[in-house]
Amino acid sequence: MIEFFRDLSHVRDAPHLLTGVLAGLLASVACGVVGPYVIVRRIVFLAGAIAHMAVGGVGAAIYLRFAAPESLGWLRPIHGGMIAAVAAALLIGTIHHRASERVDTLIGALWAIGMSVGILLMKFTPGYESELMGYLLGSIVYVDWPDVRLMLALVAAIAGTVLLFHKRFLAICLDEEQCALQGVPVLGTSLLLLTMVALTVICLVQVVGLILVLALLTLPAAAAGQHLARIGAIVWTSIVLSMLLTTLPRAAVYGTRISPESAIVIAAGAVYLASLGARRLRARRGSSGAIASAPDGPA
């Protein structure tokens, strides 16, 4: 770990160490801000579907760039992923809102189809398998400055939107019917929140990859929610927790054969499980946290 921070201090010799750390910190802000709403609104499954449907967009961008290099040479896989993720958010959010019955199966099907399309297109694109794998499993080691700039813009958009729409986001998490009575557009607000989830997914792509994106999006917020009763406190704790989780495990496995992305996700899982254990211990002593301690279902 010491070696990691020593090399980090020599930025010129190891620019990718710095860009990787910055990518982790920016992604932490995004998932710390959006993750609590995902947990409270119970849309983890929708977030998973959005992430996996984004794979289709990444695959499509790689294929289109290969098929028409002159006209689409500028297209980066992350652009395709972003378009697909936002489109998936709008589609899934609308289906989820309008369907009168449970739509798990339909959303599960979209989840699988999106990912299959991405893998299929990759097969038509010789020599690009490793690039797609980088998006699937993460490639924090290879984050470059254009990636950091894109993430900075996304995080600014996410944080600004959440600051502006927080009351509406919390309100649809609390009571959709009351929102409608107060003139707050429930579908529009829900789609905007899912669009923020989609942009957060794109921020997290290079840190942990599309397959593991759910871990960082939800586990720090879920761990914080075990012990805190106010959304503001949960957001700040999630951000700090995510920053530690994207930095320390990577430093811990630096110079070893262990992939930093896996280390980050395993550490996030361990923190969540430890948090669950701590909450149970606390509950035995007579106090409890907010999200996890409240009963499920309506009042």
Binding site: V40, L164, C173, L174, D175, G225, R230, A292
Partner: peptide, 26 residues
């Protein structure tokens, strides 16, 4: 239809009655 698991106080719930007048910001 209140989500009891939401991290919100009684005051937060009552403030929902003002959403129609003030729904922007934190």
């Amino acid at each position: 239809s209140i989500n009891l698991a939401a991290p919100a106080s009684v005051l937060d719930v009552v403030l929902m009655g003002r959403l129609g007048r003030s729904s922007w910001g934190w």
